[in-house]
Design a protein around this nucleic acid. Structure first.
Length: 297
DNA sequence: TTCCAGGAGAGAG
DNA sequence: CTCTCTCATGGA
């Protein structure tokens, strides 16, 4: 058992339950997930995080990694002041105070968001769980069972039928193709991690099955590029309803959002995305009064 | 039964 | 460039 102390302006719940990771499960007051080939159990008590690991490594060595994974090291409050441009964002930031954007493992993030297309969160979680169970290593922590995420080699050599049996559907070939590109060296994970945002995004989009939205998810949820803006049906809906007040193309939304929210638009996006999921009546008239909105509209 | 889900690709215009 | 259609799957 390790403790991480003085964790301010942080919400474990909103960070792990906001749709950016498919690997965390809440049991009572704690979250179980698989990171770097081990099960972690994390719970939050005020500004203290309690951490248990399925490996008996020196857990203190893992703390710096975990602080980075949870994005605790970033001055998020300062960043949120910069994107708090209107009454609506203000409400989202207040409601979801402490939510952070994770810095997740690259290969698992690539695979997960390839699987996410035209799919829903519970099913994505199920597919990832079945792939891990079928193709990777069983882990336990105090009676809790989960599986590490399968490596590119394993998925590159898996038969399509086996992938389909895990529920991947038509995305099976997308997953396998990208796994093979990594194995062959055509796509380098370490190179991706050294590229600036635009370059990394373009490199990702060369893969079959990775379009603009999935590439932006990978850039935002793994590579730490806060300028990335994944536009899914919800983000499109939000910007068309609340901000632009008309039908808009992705390019128009992207242009407006980056001008309006600046270089941390990815963080703003995550607060808006999760806020509308927390508040089903988000589009009600009362919520639409953007009285404090800056004069960009 | 139809619709929807953190979409992408192919084709047509 | 934009629009439309299809893709596999399961829950509502």
């Amino acid at each position: 058992m390790t403790q991480i102390q003085n964790v301010t302006d942080f919400s474990l719940k909103y960070t792990l339950e906001s749709g950016q990771s498919f690997r965390w499960e809440r049991v009572d007051n704690a979250y179980y997930g698989v990171v770097e080939g081990r099960i972690l159990k994390i719970s939050q008590e005020g500004t203290t995080l309690h951490v248990e690991s399925s490996t008996d490594e020196d857990e203190a060595d893992f703390v710096p990694y975990l602080r980075h994974y949870l994005d605790i090291v970033r001055d998020v409050p300062k960043l949120l002041v910069g994107v708090n441009n209107d009454a609506y964002m203000d409400r989202a930031i207040e409601k979801l105070w402490g939510m952070r954007i994770l810095n997740q493992e690259l290969w698992e993030t690539i695979a997960s968001f390839i699987l996410s297309q035209n799919n829903n969160v519970p099913r994505i979680r199920g597919i990832i769980r079945r792939l891990s169970e079928r193709f990777s290593e069983r882990l336990t922590l105090a009676g809790y069972v989960d599986y590490s995420f399968p490596s590119p080699d394993v998925l590159a050599t898996a038969t399509e039928d086996t992938l389909l049996a895990c529920g991947t559907g038509y995305r099976a070939n997308y997953l396998k193709d990208t796994a093979q590109a990594i194995v062959s060296g055509e796509l380098s994970l370490t190179s991706l991690q050294q590229m600036p945002y635009t370059e990394a995004k373009q490199e990702l989009m060369r893969r079959n099955g990775i379009g603009e939205k999935v590439a932006d998810c990978i850039c935002l949820f793994s590579l730490g590029h806060l300028a990335a803006l994944p536009i899914d049906v919800w983000i499109k809906r939000i910007f068309e309803t609340l901000y632009l007040r008309r039908r808009a193309t992705h390019r128009e939304i992207r242009e407006f959002a980056h001008t309006y929210f600046g270089d941390s638009v990815g963080y703003a996006q995550q607060y808006l995305f999760h806020y509308v999921h927390e508040c089903p009546n988000w589009a009600d008239a009362e919520h639409l009064s953007l009285t404090k909105m800056k004069s960009l509209l």
